[in-house]
């Protein structure tokens, strides 16, 4: 099959909430197999952009092409099926379920058995359940949470909840992974480990878009950086180019004390 070089192509994307334009006439692309960071001041529209790409919100105008296919009006479950998965800025776990069950939900889109089959416990559905369990354990292991498998997800410390969200997203076997501030609330060692994890995920062939305020992390892992301000693109380039862009410094970096 023909594989376009870009996993994601966005053109003239606009989204307004009433009078507030959160994303305005945005164009950008993401090449396959890289880590691309999206940065910008609070309220720049980064989370809104993720909501548009993952189908949680639908855009007012513009086009989204994922993996060579127009997916602009797709529903979240259709996008998940085609290979877009995400985490959330404010952790969105199934907090009353166990850690393992959370990851098992990630297998939902890759499994098929319906209500009759599981109710009657037909052999095929038992096999599928077994496979869900094993894959879920694999991804839990992958992020290093295997020992927490049977704990209630809501009881994990924040850093582990963020890892769990990543495991759950990976369990859907995405081609594109959207991470919304995965390092917020993590300490320095945790952030360092997260950076390593992102690189491993990328090396497995999964493209990552990373929204992050931690500039060290961004400069460490990202191959490209898109800078948003008031819903508009003000820069989109290699990290070292972006960090010396005067407009970027003016809009964002210059006032960001997190940048060291």
């Amino acid at each position: 099959m023909f594989q376009s070089e870009n996993i994601l192509e966005i053109s003239s994307l606009t989204k307004a909430f009433g009078g507030l334009v959160a994303i305005f006439d945005l164009d950008f692309t993401v090449s396959r197999g890289i880590i691309k960071a999206i940065i910008g001041p609070n309220g720049a529209g980064k989370t809104t952009l993720f909501n548009l790409i993952s189908g949680v919100l639908s855009s007012d105008t513009g086009d989204i092409i994922f993996n060579g296919q127009p997916v602009t009006k797709y529903k979240p479950h259709q996008l998940a099926e085609r290979g877009i998965s995400r985490t959330f800025q404010t952790v969105e776990l199934f907090s009353e379920m166990t850690v393992l069950q959370n990851v098992m939900i990630g297998r939902h889109i890759r499994t098929r058995k319906g209500v009759l089959s599981v109710g009657l416990k037909l052999p095929a559905s038992r096999r599928e359940e077994r496979a869900i369990f094993e894959k879920a354990r694999y991804y839990l292991d992958f992020v290093g949470l295997e020992e927490k498998a049977d704990q209630e997800a809501g009881n994990l410390p924040l850093g582990q909840q963020k890892l769990l969200e990543i495991a759950r997203a990976l369990a859907t076997e995405p081609k594109l992974l959207l991470l919304d501030e995965p390092a917020a609330g993590l300490n320095e060692t945790e952030t360092e480990m997260a950076a390593q994890l992102f690189k491993v995920i990328r090396d497995e062939g999964i493209t990552i878009i990373l929204v992050e305020h931690d500039m060290n992390l961004v400069m460490n892992v990202a191959e490209e950086v898109l800078v948003l301000d008031y819903g508009r693109k003000i820069a989109d380039d290699k990290p070292e180019v972006v960090r010396s862009d005067p407009e970027v410094i003016n809009a964002y970096l210059g006032v960001d004390i997190e940048y060291a």
Partner: peptide
């Protein structure tokens, strides 16, 4: 089963359930 988990996930976080393809 996956069906029961899917149903409970909607209560846990509707937005996460949606993006997990439920």
């Amino acid at each position: 089963s996956r069906v029961g988990r899917a149903l409970s996930s909607i209560h846990g976080s509707e937005i996460a359930a949606m993006t997990m393809g439920v």
